[in-house]
Structures are given as C-alpha cells and as structure tokens.
Simulated scan of single mutants.
Amino acid sequence: MAVKESTSTVEDTSQETKNGKEKTLLVFDLFEEHYAIEVSKIKEIVRIPESITRVPNAPAYVCGVINLRGTVIPVMDIAVKMNRGKIERRGESRIVVIEEEDIVFGILVDSVREVRTVNVDQIESAESIDSVISKEYLQGIVRTKDGDLIVLLDVASIFDIRSYLE
C-alpha cells in the first residue's frame, strides 16, 4: 500500500489473518528514528504549506493552524512535545493529519517512510526498552527483521486528547 498525500485519505487495512491479528502502521521519521501511528487514526498526509498561522498564547509545541480545504486544523510539533527539539522543515517534511476521539489535528514529521503491516505478536511492550520518551506516550515497539526499531506512539496520550472530551 502506498502512502497517499494531499487530497486523498489513508484507509485502515487492519485484518485478522490465519497467523493472528495484524495492525497497519504509518512509519515516519523524527530525528533519524522510526516512529509509527496506526493507519486507522490517520486521515491524510499533506505537504507543509508556505505558512502556518500562529496562534497567540499557544503552547510551544503548537505551530499554529492551517486551512485544509475549508477546515481549520491545528498543527503540532510532536518533537517539541516529546522534548526532542524542533522539526527542521525540509522538502520531505509532512503534516500527518490525525483523527483521535473525533478531534482532528496535524503533527509535523521529518518524513513519511512507509505503510507497514505487522502481526500484533511483533509488538513488544514499551517497558522493554530504555527510552528518553515517557512510557505513557508509547503503545509498544516493533523490531524489524533488519534490526531497526519502530516506536509505536499513542498520540492521544502525547497531546492529552482525552482531557478535551471530559
């Protein structure tokens, strides 16, 4: 499955197989490390526009808002929120638009790598690794066949989405 950009959405292709349940993940880069979010939470991937409108008195991790086909979308710098610095916007940088608990927002990423399907048995507990990222922000870790680690993020926890619904 190819990563779709701009005017198209990314579809959830999680499925039950004879080997067990699988999850489909969007893998992206932040600071030369691989992170992932479940595809079912992703609405679309867009190029970063020329300008993002700043929001006065917003937290440091809020870059501002964009107008995406008539919808105002807040854009967050996930790296700032995770205390990893600030995303340097480059040609391959993207905004991943996420819908979590009926709240739509975008996150900046260095680049989008791939859509990957993994068996849930491949997802290890976040407790199994030593990370500078708070464990509450992680859903787990996937070790690839070539030895890479993919960190599966819990974006609802990172941006405290559930508190907006109470």
Rank of each mutant, 00 (worst) to 15 (best):
A2S: 12
V3S: 04
E5I: 15
E5C: 14
S6Q: 14
E11W: 07
E11N: 08
T13L: 10
Q15P: 01
K18E: 14
K23W: 13
L25K: 08
L26I: 02
L30Y: 01
F31C: 08
F31S: 13
E33M: 12
E38V: 02
E38W: 06
S40G: 07
E44A: 15
I45C: 09
V46D: 10
I48T: 06
E50S: 14
I52L: 00
R54D: 12
P56T: 09
A60H: 09
I66T: 00
N67L: 12
N67R: 02
R69C: 03
G70A: 06
V75P: 06
V80P: 02
K81H: 06
M82C: 07
E88S: 09
R89P: 01
R90E: 13
G91R: 14
I95M: 04
I95D: 09
E100A: 08
E101T: 12
E101L: 14
V104K: 11
F105P: 00
G106E: 02
V109S: 04
V112F: 00
V112Y: 04
E114W: 04
V115P: 01
R116T: 07
R116Y: 10
T117R: 10
V118Y: 09
D121A: 15
D121M: 14
D121P: 01
E124F: 13
A126T: 01
E127V: 12
I129Y: 02
I133R: 03
I141S: 00
V142A: 02
D148M: 11
V151W: 04
V151M: 10
L152M: 11
I158A: 03
I158H: 07
I158Y: 04
I158E: 06
I161E: 05
R162A: 15
E166D: 11
E166P: 02
